[in-house]
Nucleic acid binder design. Structure first.
Length: 647
RNA sequence: GCUGUUGUAGCUCAGGGGUAGAGCACUUCCUUGGUAAGGAAGAGGUCGUGAGUUCAAUUCUCAUCAACAGCUCCA
C-alpha cells in the first residue's frame, strides 16, 4: 500500500500502481469524468499513469492551468490526426499548448496552401475524431525503434527532434490512427474535447531559425463545452475593441500616412497633448530626483556610433547614413541617445564629488525596424524614449539602481499598471560573441541588477539571451489586449560604454577612475507606453490625462449664454471642456459624448440656468445630480490631483 | 525580411466582366427637444498602384505597395 496526500492535507492509502483516475473514481464518478491529468509530486502526468510510491496528488480538471494546457496539447495531437486523415503525407514539426490559451501545430504540407475554408473542414474532421473517444496511449520506445518509425513515415522534423533525445527517455503517444513522438502528458481520451475552433494560419521557421524551412503553423483552441468556446469568442471580441490602433483612430490620438512613411506615427492634437502631459508628469518627478535635462540633435556623426559599438551591431538596422555634400562626412539618424550623453559627460572634467550625474532627455530616435515587425505604436521606426543616463561611481551603482526602480514603480503605480513582470535580462549562456566587454564587467553588472532587484523585493523572472549587447537589463514587461508581451520600462547597468568613450572622473585618491553608466527609461518609449496605456484603460484615460475632461451639453440654443459662462469658469480652472452646440437632442449629445469616452458631461437647461448649477453625468455611470460650478470644479481638481484611474 | 490573408466613400462594410451601394460621419434645411441615435434633402469614390487577358476590368491573371496574423529581429 502507498500513502497519497491530497491538496487539503488528507492522506489516504491505496494499492501500489493505482492511477489518479482510479483514485478519482473512488471519490466520485462525476469527478472521474472531469479529470484531465494529474499532478503527482508536483509533476504533471497522465491520469492513467500508475503511482508506485508515496506522494502528493492533485487531480487536474479544466479549472487548473495545467489541466487546460494538457487538454490543448492533446488537441494539437487531435488536429494532427485530422490533418493526416485529410492530407496524407503531411509532416509534423512541433505542436505545443500556448500560455495564452490554445495550441498550434507546425506542419509541412509540401507546398500545399491551406485556406480558412480548409480550417473549417479540419474542424469538422477533428470533431468527428473527438467523438470516437480515442484513448491517448503512452508507450516507451527505444531510440532505434523511434528512428525506424519516423524514417519509414518520412518525417524529417521528428527525426530532428529525436536526435536531441536520449535513449531510454523516449515515449510515443497514440490516439486513433495517429502516433506522435511526445513526452506527454495527455488527457484520457479525445472525448473530452467538445468544442473546437481553429483560429488562424501563419508561417513559422522550423526550430525558430530563419535559415530553416518555413512550416505552416495552424493555431486553434478547444473547450470542454460549446458554452466555454462562445465565452472565449466573446472575450476575444472585447479584447479587439481595446486595440490601441482602433481606439487611437476613434479617439483621434494618432494616425499613420503612407506618404510620411511606415512606422512613423503622426500625433494628432488630442494625442500630442496627452503625450505632453505624460512627459511633464515624468519630467517633474525626474527633476525632483536630481536629473538634469539635456537636449541632443536628431543626427550624429557615424563615428559616434562606431565608438559606441552600435554601428557594428545595428548598422544594418539603422537608416543609412546621410552624406554631407562638401566634406563627404557620414551622419546617422540617432538610433540611441546614450552616445550623445557620453559626450555631454566628457564636456567637463568630473570629480568623484560630482557623481552621480543624471542626464535626462526625451530623445526621439529612429531605427530601421523590419517591415513585418511594425505594429501600431508598439513597434515603430521613429519614437521618443524617456531616456536618461546616470554616471556614477562603482560604490553608488546599487543605490542609484534602487532609486530608479522606485521611479519606475512610481510611474507604473500612478497609471494603475499592476500586471507587469519584472524581467532580469541576462546574456545568452551559449553565444557570448553577441556581446561586448569583459566577463568581469558583465558579472559586476549582473550582480548589481540581481542585488538591487532583491533589495527592492521585486518579484523577478530571469531570461537568458535578453540582455543588451553592452549590458544586462531589468525590464518591465506588460501584456497588450491580445496577450502579446511588450517591454516598457527598462534599467540597464553598463560598464562598457564608459570604457569605449573613455569616461573618467578624479577620485578621492587623486587618481583617474572610470564611472559606471545606468541607462534607464521608465516608459521605455512614449509611443509604446501610450499604446499599452490605451489598451489597459480601453481608451478611458484617467481624468488627469484624458484629452477632453468635460463635454458641456446645452439642452437647446436658448441656454447658449449660460453655457458659455460655465465654459469660461471651467477654462479659468484649467479644466479641458468642450461645448456641443449642435442642433441635436440631448439624448444624441449624451450618446456621442459617451462613445467618445468623455469622463464628465454637463447637461445645461432651464433648471440649471435658473439655479446657477450644472447637472453632472459621469461616463458609463449616469446622472450624478446637480451641483454648483464651484463644487464641480473641486470634484474635477480633486480627481486630477489624486491621479485617480478612470475606473 | 519570411509565410499566409486582406485592400471598394472620412469610418465600418456589402457587391460583382458592361465604369458602384448601405449605415455612421459630413453639408443645408426643418426641429428647440431633459440623460445613449428627431426628420428631410444633399455632397462625397478614376473600387491601393502598375501591367496583362478581353469588344469591355473595380471584378479575371501577374507584379508592386500597404495593412492584418504569426515567425525571425528589437540598442
Amino acid at each position: 500500500m502507498i500513502n497519497i496526500t491530497f491538496p487539503d492535507g488528507a492522506v489516504r492509502q491505496y494499492e501500489q500502481g493505482v492511477s489518479a483516475l482510479d483514485i478519482a473514481k473512488s471519490i466520485s464518478e462525476g469527478l472521474a469524468r472531469k479529470v484531465l491529468a494529474a499532478k503527482v509530486n508536483g509533476q504533471v502526468v497522465d491520469a492513467s499513469r500508475p503511482i508506485t510510491q508515496d506522494g502528493t496528488l492533485q487531480l487536474l480538471t479544466w479549472v487548473d492551468t495545467d489541466g487546460k494546457a494538457t487538454m490543448w496539447h492533446s488537441s494539437a495531437h487531435l488536429m494532427a490526426e485530422a490533418l493526416e486523415a485529410l492530407y496524407p503525407g503531411v509532416k509534423f514539426g512541433n505542436g505545443p499548448s500556448l500560455e495564452n490559451g490554445g495550441f498550434f501545430y507546425d506542419v509541412d504540407l509540401d507546398g500545399r496552401a491551406i485556406s480558412d475554408e480548409d480550417l473549417r473542414k479540419l474542424e469538422v474532421k477533428m470533431t468527428e475524431l473527438a467523438n470516437l473517444n480515442s484513448v491517448y496511449v503512452r508507450k516507451d520506445v527505444s531510440k532505434a525503434d523511434a528512428i525506424k518509425y519516423f524514417t519509414e513515415k518520412n518525417d524529417p522534423y521528428k527525426l530532428d527532434n529525436l536526435q536531441k533525445l536520449e535513449d531510454g527517455n523516449i515515449t510515443f503517444y497514440t490516439q486513433g490512427n495517429f502516433t506522435d513522438l511526445c513526452r506527454g502528458p495527455h488527457i484520457p481520451n479525445t472525448g473530452f474535447i467538445k468544442a473546437i475552433k481553429l483560429t488562424n494560419i501563419a508561417g513559422a521557421y522550423w526550430m525558430g531559425d530563419e535559415k530553416n524551412k518555413m512550416l505552416t503553423r495552424i493555431y486553434g483552441i478547444t473547450f470542454p463545452s460549446k458554452k466555454e468556446l462562445d465565452e472565449y469568442l466573446t472575450l476575444l471580441e472585447e479584447a479587439k475593441k481595446r486595440d490601441h490602433r482602433k481606439l487611437g483612430k476613434e479617439l483621434e490620438l494618432f494616425a499613420f500616412s503612407e506618404k510620411v512613411g511606415l512606422g512613423l506615427p503622426l500625433w494628432l492634437p488630442k494625442g500630442a497633448m496627452l503625450r505632453e502631459r505624460l512627459q511633464n508628469f515624468l519630467q517633474k518627478a525626474q527633476i525632483e530626483s536630481g536629473y538634469l535635462p539635456v537636449v541632443t540633435p536628431h543626427i550624429g556623426n557615424k563615428n559616434l556610433y562606431i565608438t559606441s559599438g552600435h554601428y557594428e551591431k545595428y548598422g544594418k538596422d539603422s537608416f543609412q547614413p546621410i552624406h554631407t555634400p562638401e566634406e563627404g562626412e557620414e551622419f546617422m539618424l540617432k538610433p540611441m541617445n546614450c552616445p550623445h550623453h557620453c559626450e555631454i559627460y566628457k564636456v567637463s572634467p568630473k570629480s568623484y564629488k560630482d557623481l552621480p550625474v543624471r542626464f535626462a532627455e526625451f530623445g526621439t530616435v529612429y531605427r530601421y525596424e523590419q517591415h513585418g515587425e511594425l505594429h501600431g505604436l508598439t513597434r515603430v521606426r521613429g519614437f521618443t524614449q524617456d531616456d536618461a543616463h546616470l554616471f556614477c561611481r562603482p560604490d553608488q551603482v546599487k543605490e542609484e539602481f534602487c532609486k530608479v526602480i522606485d521611479l519606475v514603480l512610481y510611474v507604473f503605480a500612478s497609471l494603475g499598471f499592476d500586471n507587469y513582470t519584472a524581467q532580469i535580462s541576462l546574456r545568452d549562456k551559449e553565444d557570448r560573441a553577441k556581446y561586448i566587454g569583459s566577463d568581469e564587467n558583465w558579472e559586476l553588472a549582473e550582480q548589481a541588477i540581481i542585488e538591487s532587484a532583491a533589495e527592492k523585493g521585486l518579484k523577478t523572472v530571469v531570461e537568458y539571451g535578453e540582455a543588451a549587447f553592452y549590458g544586462p537589463k531589468l525590464d518591465f514587461m506588460v501584456k497588450d489586449a491580445l496577450g502579446r508581451k511588450w517591454q516598457l520600462g527598462t534599467i540597464q547597468v553598463d560598464y562598457n560604454l564608459p570604457e569605449r568613450f573613455e569616461l573618467e572622473y578624479i577620485g578621492a585618491d587623486n587618481k583617474v577612475h572610470r564611472p559606471v553608466m545606468i541607462h534607464r527609461a521608465p516608459f521605455g518609449s512614449l509611443e509604446r507606453f501610450i499604446a499599452v496605456l490605451i489598451e489597459h484603460c480601453a481608451g478611458k484615460f484617467p481624468l488627469w490625462l484624458t484629452p477632453t475632461q468635460v463635454k458641456i451639453l446645452p439642452i437647446s440654443d436658448k441656454y447658449q449664454a449660460y453655457t458659455e459662462k460655465v465654459a469660461e469658469l471651467l477654462k479659468k480652472a484649467e479644466i479641458r471642456a468642450e461645448i456641443d452646440d449642435r442642433s441635436e437632442k440631448i439624448g444624441k449629445k449624451i450618446r456621442d459624448a459617451e462613445i467618445a469616452k468623455v469622463p464628465y458631461m454637463l447637461v445645461l437647461g432651464e433648471k440649471e440656468e435658473s439655479d446657477g448649477k450644472v447637472a453632472v453625468r459621469r461616463q458609463a455611470k449616469g446622472d450624478l445630480g446637480a451641483m454648483s460650478v464651484e463644487e464641480f470644479v473641486s470634484l474635477i481638481q480633486d480627481e486630477v490631483a489624486n491621479r485617480k484611474p478612470f475606473e
